[in-house]
Design a protein around this nucleic acid. Sequence first.
DNA 1: TTTTTACTTTAAAATCGTTCTAAACTACTT
DNA 2: AAGTAGTTTAGAACGATTTTAAAGTAAAAA
Lengths: 132, 132
Amino acid sequence: MNNKEKLRNVGLRPTKQRMIIAKILLNGVNRHFTAENLQNEINSSGNSMSIATIYNCLKKFRNCGLIKQVESSKETAIFDTNINQHHHFLDEETGELIDIENEEINLFKLPEIPKGYVNSGVEVLIKLRRQI
Amino acid sequence: MNNKEKLRNVGLRPTKQRMIIAKILLNGVNRHFTAENLQNEINSSGNSMSIATIYNCLKKFRNCGLIKQVESSKETAIFDTNINQHHHFLDEETGELIDIENEEINLFKLPEIPKGYVNSGVEVLIKLRRQI
DNA sequence: TTTTTACTTTAAAATCGTTCTAAACTACTT
DNA sequence: AAGTAGTTTAGAACGATTTTAAAGTAAAAA
């Protein structure tokens, strides 16, 4: 499926700007990035785009499930092209994230989900400190 | 141990402002809060404090291990008085966090820690959606 | 096609949470 | 009591993100 179809499938108009971003993000390679990272890549691909458009687009992509936003207490929002359930190592010093595939963690026992709610995803974060 | 001793124990001077905040936070009751939440409580306790002092104090308290900061992609930093390893439910709609005690989750299998690092804490986040 | 409509992009301003600055203050040491 | 090192403060500054409102564009209707 090409990017135009991917966008149409989730109900987004394939505008010029969204296609440029889709080309960068939806190529099957998993990665973490910020809005600023993405703008730099757009620029170095010979294109340019308002930062407002980049934020609009990332929010739409996220809400449509094309990308994920990582739970992180960094000041800048971090996005992830890996939309499957998976987990992360976090280098507490640098903020760097490393993917952990879902199968590498086995959650043997889970607590009861509060009444009226359903589980919509489990994320495990393993924080790391450099060994001394 | 009283609050003055708690502060001294971690190498912090027990100033008037830190004692006010310690009285609110270090009373054994576990809770989540933001800097703004805390300022409101300080105000309604009849005291007042510069927002800069509140941020300074929260950062010091966190760095000294008196409180924790929650990994969350909310725009505002969320702190937690529960400093034991534990986990959270997250209501994705409202952002509300509910504690999950450490014993309620059993991580049966963990991935190998990357070379040169040590595990400095595991946080599990169970995201919740309201049942329809 | 052409026209219409709804959605999208944009630069610039605004907002929000947080940090910085530098002067006044205070806890602790001498 | 005096010195000094750490702390508090208001207000300015900052950085990430959102809003604004006007211009542009994709899709639908005619």
